[in-house]
Design a protein around this nucleic acid. Sequence first.
RNA 1: GGCCCGAUAGCUCAGUCGGUAGAGCAGUGGAUUGAAAAUUCACGUGUCGGCGGUUCAAAUCCGUCUCGGGCCA
Length: 261
Amino acid sequence: MAAKLDGEIVNADAFQLYRGLEIVSATPSKEEFGIRPHHLYGVLDPTESADAQLYVKLAKPVIEEIQSRGKTPVVTGGSGLYLKFLTHGAAPLPTGDPALRAEMEECPLEDLVAKLTALDPVEASRTALQNRRFVSRALEICLLSGQKASDLRDGWEKQTAEISSQLRGIVIQRTRPDLHARIAQRTRMMLDGGAIEEVAALKDVSTNCEKAIGFREIRALLAGEIDRATCEDLINAATRQYAKRQESWFRREKWLEPYTA
RNA sequence: GGCCCGAUAGCUCAGUCGGUAGAGCAGUGGAUUGAAAAUUCACGUGUCGGCGGUUCAAAUCCGUCUCGGGCCA
């Protein structure tokens, strides 16, 4: 598509942003990099933590620069949340605070729910209260901003319909058997192609970076906790589940047209 | 050839004193605005290996056959 549009590729994959994770994250090959210019691959050190806001900060200038040269940015990936931020903008919310998060980690979930309910009952009523992540984030917004998360988030939701009418994109669809076969092939190629050595070589990684599918599984293999076949099975299952979540996410993005491969 | 153990959901296995079965994982669907390759919610009919017997009633007891695994020859 990039070739057809005289375009340049911009990565929107949370893990292909990192250096040193090329094999595990299935970063494009040297040959693929040669076909069209690629941007935002391997731009973060594994010790750094990324988030959706940082991604937008990285991607916006790159996209604008491509456009200024008269080329078409072809954004591709990966993370639904990162893409959503890029395409629909960020709500005026405070950035996550590691210290506060660490503090909240120590609290039982019910305490966090109680605090959120006291500070912002509206947000509490529309948050999945079993989901520690979501509860923590909503509470974090209240605590850091001194305002109600529900108020801050409401404004943002009104803008999105307008923005999405200007977007153009496709979402590739495959049958489940085809998808699963491709995932199995991809995992096999990774493990045979240096993924184990790649993970062994990474020493200090951020808690963010170590969530890459394959990282923990290969660490367990290196530690002798599981064998190679089990490692492969675990990576396959995690990848299938991720692919399914991507399908759910992108199905809701009405501006994306389905493309059957 | 003889003896012992096993056979229950796609996989690994539970299943009390007989009352027609349930967990984990996998799978399927959903949620999702600064951790997102993360996090989270919902969904469990399967000749209980086959055949026969006992019983009001068998995954459960008895017999036999088949297939695994082990021990002895």
